[in-house]
Design a protein around this nucleic acid. Structure first.
Length: 1096
RNA sequence: GGACGAUUAGCUCAGUUGGCUAGAGCGCUUCGUUUACACCGAAGAAGUCGUAGGUUCGAGUCCUACAUCGUCCACCA
């Protein structure tokens, strides 16, 4: 019957074959498990156990951290599969947008010297897919090597076609539910690469820099400190600590000042993040160019002024600084501060400069449009609760539990402080945002509502006549102007005007009033003011041109547009405010007829925008005062379209950005189970109905916040269900020195290497033993080697038992009547391993099965290991070599078979291989988990006495340096006849278990022969028993040993005595404890007396 | 700066409402070739439980402070 059974277990020869057998069996797929073996719950529904594998990033091959996650999850899956659950473990990989893009781009740059921009979106993505297929197959191989019983038929990828559909649907649903919006946020901008950087693309460099302490202006009450004076042009507030006595009185006030000839309006705000001791304790707030300032601006409703542009230069409208690089502008400002005696201090400090990981350029934080998920908005879909509230609640009321529990706190901290989640990423690799924008010139749908717009330029002023540039100087209309305007009035008699909007400058307002034939409402709007000419205001156009022929202007016919005006508005400024005005009108006044009264530049600009032509083409449209033009504006509400496919008509372009990787992986529990197709009218179908919510999620604690929190929110939103019941958090696997394993340090252990060397089972076991959830673990090759040795031991235990089988291996019924003490002892102990209290060696009163139920894998493994080695191999197997009874063989098979089952989730390959020797129909992987108990009554302490005697003899032989070949004689005395009988009956054990006993007498204490002199007295823990070894006379050694024992006992006795003498102990400690202590005292005392007696 | 974790034998770690003389594996020392296994067996040595206080009849375990190491988050005006 024996199959090939080599002396040492060779995992290399076994593992791949076994894995192939498993795969072929189809049982990785829960659908193939036999229905009759599946347990049902109260409602008759099949019990399922699902884990969705955290999809590893396809950036690199797996490291031991992944192996650790695989080992724990495969353990759970195998355990529950054997327990009769439909166990599904679903594999997949993660596209990891940013990380992957970086890896490929770095590779590309290194190998070909190309950036992604050089290649273009399409070609670059091709490169990524090429890279991806390679790593994916490596990851797959590694995962299989570990023995993972994953259902490969359900394999997924975060960026495969089905997931693309799911992601789009999710985005659209969330958008329609009002959970997704578009807003501004500070992003990391690299002015050299001209691209945004994700947070983890930002690197930090320690640098020395100057901290400038200065005042904005002479009489300004605050002195502030900064390392970046140039950004101060965009300051809109000063922040101080709310507890700062120096500044308390200023909080809430607003000051206007002139900072280096730029006007600033500064509100004094309080923020607890401000350190009173840093600098002057007052911080100039620059919302547009600093993360923390941006947050303060959001909280305090501050104005946001952008100072630096995407080119890294100071924007227009900042006078002499405009167009200068950040560096130059800083120099200029410092110089000016010095000149005006405003710079109080200039000191060198060390700080962290954030730089681009690609080119080391200093990063500029800039505001930019991004997509967000609102976590605080109350959503109808969530019953009026916000995502945040829902996600917190399910953990608060224990629907989701963390293992270990302490991570709840981290979860709550993160959730409660969570700001809106920015989901757009400026990368190419990922789920493209399903939003389309329509270019304005093609907006021409008949169904759209329109505004009838009439634009009129104001009547003449004196300055108009003199050719002086008025700008925002409030020059009134003159007599001539009024006269011509009144003439115009007639034209408006037949117009049904609903509303007039006018520039607030006198000349326009007056015009509006005159043209208001029907006495409709007149609204003033600042955005319609004339172009602010800065230093040029009040000058004659001709003079300016003479003075500075290089000044940049647009000119066409007689019309001009001043592009760069010192201290004035730039082209963009005007365009932006005017555009804002148009967009506002579209929102508010669809279907109305509106008269807009304004000035030349704004009117030309509106004309350019509405006709989608350049400003130069629009120049001269409103050259003449009192010019009137009519327009129809389409109030296209669908300027933004959110949907899976673009609208049919031309002219829609998709958002360039991709979604945050966590958006797609946040949907992982349900998108992998067929959502959205498996979710109709709020009901779950197919896999989703069967396997969701999943039972456990296992992942590294470092992504608790990033991933787990997102999954909870997404699942609650999409299917109104928690995604999983338990979150098992794996710690990190560190090297033997406690350092994080990393490629750059070269201290990483490659799972494939160690699997090759020691076998997958050994690697798995080493990752499970001594590993507690949430804690990091160190791993060395020595540890794996140790596990390999254990597996080999198990192999040899099996080898011994199975090779001794003369006939077919059968699990036969054990006859309880023919059991020896050792039989009863081992069976009884094995019962408790499976499912009972166990007291002999293990302190916790739980069974192996219960440890697994409580995710205490490390303890479970060491528990079973103790049984396997100490109980089964070292004692029982040794006994079986000479204690031949009819039941022995049955018992060996009985225990071995079940031991293999219990070990299977930990070391699947070796156990399955050994299992092959049994004549079993089934693979071990689907064998039933043992629950049947034999319940054999036995007093375990009887066997313990025998063990104790044997150990003492062995110990003595070693201590007295008796050669192993030398046999010795022994006498045992006891007054306890029950114990004497016991020893008599187990004499063969004492003689045969490597004690080297020759003659062996057992006598009642009163038969003791006091005359025997050449004996050594041996101490045993049971004070009823006296042992004498004959023929190893070393009285000095005996004396020494006994004295040592006496010292030990006296010390101990003293401890107990102190306790018992303490009245408080007697009165306050529980009676049970006191009783135990008293008993201990008695026992120790009698033992001590006996030994003292012997010593004399 | 904030949070969390760790600190127990030479090393790696257990130690679950505070209560049997603090345990295991590796390593070390000694002995050993036996019906499987030298990837083995037997025996042994080795710990003021990071420091200082506190609570308690009783603290490795609970509390406070500190130290060292580590991780995450925020930030470095």
């Amino acid at each position: 019957m024996q199959k090939e059974f080599p002396k040492t277990y060779n995992p290399k020869e076994v593992e791949d074959k076994i894995y192939a057998t498993w795969e072929k069996s189809g049982f990785f797929n829960p659908d193939n498990l036999q229905t009759k073996n599946i347990k049902k719950d109260k409602n008759g529904k099949e019990k399922t156990y699902t884990i969705i594998l955290p999809p590893p990033n396809i950036t690199d091959k797996l490291h031991l951290g992944h192996s650790s996650i695989l080992a724990t999850q495969d353990l759970l899956i195998r355990y529950y599969r054997m327990k009769g659950y439909r166990a599904l473990w679903l594999p997949g990989t993660d596209h990891a947008g940013i990380a992957t893009q970086n890896v490929v781009e770095k590779k590309l740059l290194k190998e070909k010297g190309l950036t992604r921009q050089d290649l273009g979106r399409e070609k670059f993505l091709k490169e990524i897919w090429k890279f991806l297929s390679k790593t994916q197959s490596v990851i797959l191989k590694q995962t299989k090597k570990m023995g993972s019983s994953l259902d490969w038929s359900r394999e997924t990828f975060t960026l495969d076609e089905e997931r693309k559909i799911a992601v789009k649907k999710m985005f659209i649903d969330m958008y329609e539910a009002g959970a997704i919006y578009r807003g501004e946020r500070i992003i990391n901008w690299c002015p050299r690469c001209k691209s945004t950087l994700a947070d983890d693309e930002v690197e930090y460099k320690k640098q020395k820099t100057k901290l400038y302490t200065f005042k904005y202006s002479k009489n300004f009450p605050f002195t502030i400190a900064t390392t970046r004076p140039e950004t101060k042009l965009g300051d809109t507030a000063i922040a101080v600590n709310p507890n700062d006595q120096r500044y308390k009185k200023y909080i809430g006030k607003t000051y206007e000042t002139n900072f280096c000839s730029v006007k600033l309006k500064l509100k004094i705000i309080a923020d607890r993040h401000i350190e009173m001791d840093f600098g002057t304790g007052a911080l100039g707030v620059t919302p547009a160019h600093s993360m923390i300032d941006w947050q303060m601006a959001e909280k305090n409703n501050l104005k946001i002024i952008k100072v630096i542009g995407e080119d890294g230069k100071i924007k227009d409208n900042f006078g002499e600084y405009s167009g200068k690089t950040v560096k130059d502008a800083r120099k200029m400002i410092v110089k000016k501060l010095k000149k005006n005696n405003l710079l109080e201090k200039e000191e060198e400090i060390e700080n962290n400069l954030s730089i681009c990981y690609r080119c080391d350029t200093a990063i500029e934080p800039l505001p930019s449009k991004q997509w967000f998920i609102s976590v605080n908005k109350k959503l109808d879909r969530l019953g009026g609760k916000s995502l945040k509230e829902k996600a917190i609640k399910v953990v608060k009321n224990k629907k989701i539990e963390f293992i270990p529990n302490r991570f709840e706190k981290r979860y709550f901290d993160w959730m409660e402080n969570m700001r809106d989640w920015c989901i757009s990423r400026q990368i190419w690799f990922g789920h493209r945002i399903p939003v389309w924008y329509q270019r304005s010139e093609v907006r021409n749908q008949k169904s759209d509502k329109k505004i009838n717009l009439i634009m009129a330029r104001h009547g003449k002023t004196d300055w108009n006549e003199k050719g002086i540039m008025q700008g925002q100087f409030d020059i009134p209309m003159n007599k001539l102007g009024e006269k011509t305007t009144f003439k115009l009035r007639d034209k408006f008699k037949n117009e049904k005007i609903d509303l007039i909007i006018t520039s607030p400058l006198k000349r326009a307002k007056k015009t509006a009033e005159i043209l208001n034939v029907n006495g409709v409402k007149i609204i003033e709007d600042d955005r319609l003011k004339e172009h602010y000419y800065g230093e040029l205001q009040g000058k004659k156009r001709a003079d300016v041109l003479k003075e500075d022929p290089n000044i940049k202007i647009l000119e066409k016919n007689n019309a001009t547009f001043w592009m760069e005006i010192p201290g004035g508005e730039s082209y963009e400024d005007v365009r932006k405010r005017v555009n804002n005005f148009i967009e506002d009108m579209k929102k508010k006044y669809a279907g109305k007829t509106i008269l807009v009264v304004s000035h030349e530049d704004p009117l030309d600009m509106i004309h350019a925008i509405l006709n989608n032509i350049s400003k130069i083409d629009a120049l001269g449209t409103f050259t003449n005062v009192n010019d009137i033009k009519k327009y129809k504006i389409l109030c296209a509400e669908k300027k933004i379209y959110v949907g899976a496919e673009p609208p049919k008509e031309n002219g829609w372009t998709q958002d360039e950005d991709s979604l945050d990787t966590w958006f797609s992986s946040g949907m992982w529990t349900f998108s992998t189970l067929g959502w959205p197709n498996s979710f109709k009218n709020g009901k779950k179908l197919k896999d989703l109905a069967k396997f969701h919510p999943t039972q456990a999620l296992g992942t590294g604690y470092e992504i608790l916040t990033l991933w787990v929190s997102r999954m909870i929110m997404m699942s609650l939103f999409a299917v109104n269900e928690i995604p999983f019941e338990k979150v098992y958090l794996n710690g990190m696997v560190l090297d033997e020195y406690g350092k994080k394993m990393s490629k750059s340090k070269g201290n990483g252990i490659d799972p494939l290497d160690v699997i090759d060397k020691f076998g997958a089972d050994a690697v798995r076991l080493s990752l499970l033993i001594g590993n507690t959830p949430g804690n990091d673990m160190r791993l060395s090759e020595e540890k794996i080697e140790g596990c390999r040795n254990f597996i080999n031991k198990l192999w040899n235990i099996s080898r011994y038992i199975l090779q001794n089988q003369k006939s077919e291996i059968k699990d036969q019924k054990i006859n309880y009547d023919n059991l020896t003490l050792s039989d009863k002892w081992i069976l009884n102990n094995f019962d408790s391993v499976i499912d009972l209290e166990h007291t002999a060696k293990i302190t916790r009163s739980k069974s192996f099965t219960e440890f697994l139920d409580h995710y205490d894998f490390s303890f479970a493994a060491s528990f079973l290991q103790t049984f396997t080695l100490d109980f089964f191999a070292d004692w029982y197997l040794e006994i079986s070599k000479f204690e031949k009874t009819s039941e022995k063989n049955k018992i060996l098979i009985y225990i071995l078979k079940r031991l293999l089952i219990l070990w299977h989730p930990f070391i699947p390959f070796a156990t399955e291989k050994i299992w092959g020797n049994f004549n079993s129909k089934n693979l071990l992987m689907i064998e039933k988990w043992p629950t049947k108990k034999l319940k054999i009554p036995v007093d375990n302490c009887y066997f313990h006495i025998i063990q104790d005697i044997i150990k003492s003899i062995r110990n003595a032989r070693s201590q007295y340096k008796v050669k192993s070949s030398q046999k010795i004689d022994m006498v045992i005395y006891s007054k306890n006849s029950k114990k004497l009988d016991l020893i008599k009956s187990q004499k063969h054990l004492i003689k045969n278990l490597r004690t080297g006993i020759n003659k062996f007498k057992i006598k009642k204490i009163n038969e003791k022969n006091e005359n025997v002199k050449d004996v050594i007295y041996l101490t045993v823990s049971d004070s009823d028993i006296e042992i004498y070894l004959i023929g190893m006379i070393d009285k000095n050694k005996e004396k020494e040993n006994l004295q040592k024992e006496i010292n030990n006992l006296e010390k101990y006795l003293n401890q107990i005595k102190n306790k018992l003498d303490n009245k408080n102990f007697i009165s306050k400690a529980p009676a049970e404890i006191v009783k135990i202590e008293k008993r201990k005292y008695k026992e120790t005392e009698s033992k001590l007396k006996k030994i003292q007696c012997k010593l004399k």
